[in-house]
Amino acid sequence: MTNIGFRILPIKRRVERSLVEQFRSVVTPHISDNLNRIHAIGSNLRPYHKEGKLIGTAITVKTRPGDNLLVHKAIDLAQPGDVIVVDAGGDTTNAIVGEIMMQLARKKGIAGFIIDGAIRDLAAFQNSDFPVYAKGVTHRGPYKDGPGEMNVVISVDGMLVEPGDLIVGDEDGLAVVPYDFAEEILHKVRAQEIREREILESIENGTVDRNWVDETLKQRGCELNDLAEQV
């Protein structure tokens, strides 16, 4: 009989490692733009590590707030390059991970943590390049009783994450690229990089075209007076 709420499922698919590596130079704003700006983990989760980009495939954990038993199991089962993404309900009463779990994960080659909840041992993370994003910090430790689930669809600060999805995190936040669209999004991002480079060059050499601003205002029915046009 299936024990809903206390189970560990296998990951059926992961974005290919070679494709993941091609995203290493990609910034999260470009990913977000090409996902129509809705496939991003919310701004409540911020980086707590010293430096370093987060990139890898998601192992998902849904846990009772304040409990990290299934997170420990995720560390044991994760493959190098996986990101452990934890839906702890956004509760920051108890920390989900700390320095010991960070060192266990680092030793295994895990790419980083995303915790929709709290961490502790802040100084250890701030002095490390092991990527961790979380909602907050508390000294209060976790329980280890369960229940919880691994490799199910979870919600992290408003974003659905499926096991095997591509995760990218930088100083601007966290983007999630669904498994089925990773290659397509990479092509779109590369095209955007070229467009934005051309815009920056036109700003520098004084040839940038700003007519689109007034054209958009007119299309929206905005009344442009003489003063607005002069400015």
Rank of each mutant, 00 (worst) to 15 (best):
G98L: 10
A124F: 07
M102I: 08
A118F: 08
V153I: 14
I84F: 08
T93K: 12
I84N: 02
A78K: 04
A124E: 09
D116Q: 05
G98T: 09
A124W: 06
T92D: 04
V153E: 14
V161G: 01
G136L: 09
A123Q: 15
G81S: 10
K108A: 14
V86A: 03
K107L: 11
D116L: 03
M102H: 05
E99V: 11
V132K: 00
M150G: 09
G81W: 07
M101C: 02
G158N: 10
A124K: 11
G98Q: 10
M150C: 10
V132Y: 01
M102E: 04
F130H: 10
M102Q: 11
A74E: 07
P142G: 06
V132R: 00
D157M: 06
A111D: 06
E149S: 10
M102T: 05
D157F: 01
N151P: 10
A111P: 03
E99M: 13
A123N: 14
I96A: 04
N151S: 12
V85R: 00
I96Q: 03
P80D: 12
P80N: 13
M159P: 00
M159I: 06
V97G: 03
N94D: 06
D129H: 11
D91M: 05
A123K: 15
E149F: 03
K135E: 06
G117Q: 05
